[in-house]
Amino acid sequence: MILTTKNLRKEVPSGESNLVILDDITFSLEEGKSLAITGPSGSGKSTLLALLAGLDTSTSGDIVLDGIKLNLLDEEERAILRKDKVGFVFQSFELLPGLTALENVMLPSELKSEENPKEKGEYFLERVGLSDRQHHYPNQLSGGEQQRVAIARAFACSAKILFADEPTGNLDPKNGKLISDLLFEVNSEADNALVIVTHDQDLASQCDKKIELKLGKIVG
């Protein structure tokens, strides 16, 4: 198993009491497989994604990612884990505006101190069909193009598992379809596990596994 959770619970302070965002979340995902997390707004999908990716900590319960118990790691150790094993694609792309498309894709390789970040960046940009836009800044690219750069960056991480938060949420249906196809295509090449948070039932249906959240609990 690449990812396992057991009795996961997340509470946040709200006034004098605590608000339960997630409760009793238990599931697992095999290596190279894909998982869709669906549910209405406010159901706790993105919070779950943040916990699974080690961006946030749970109140109780366990998360094991590639054999490592996330609960036992501090923020610095979780950062190293993200660097080595995790890739991300966000709904709002989250590219660095001051860096070109190529530089954004080079970033994970730089953080890993890899030898040829430029070559790797160029390879993945070519893979997402943006060879001719390498030196463009994010504000010079369309939404679809920005998300393609984000996908290239995610795969440049050489991650074992990829987390995507509403990857098509900010795109029109045509571009959304292109991006989801690209995501699955590149993912199958890389043989990564993929966790997608989405409202899009079509996108969810392409995944090997699906869990549906409602008010912080798995309902299906």
């Binding site: 950062a79 190293i80 884990l81 993200r82 991300f88 989250e94 890993k112």
Partner: peptide, 16 residues
């Protein structure tokens, strides 16, 4: 702020 968040998400340590 934004850059730091992205860097940390991608695995940059706080020390860096």
């Amino acid at each position: 702020r934004h850059q730091s968040a992205i860097l940390r998400t991608l695995g940059a340590t706080g020390k860096l």
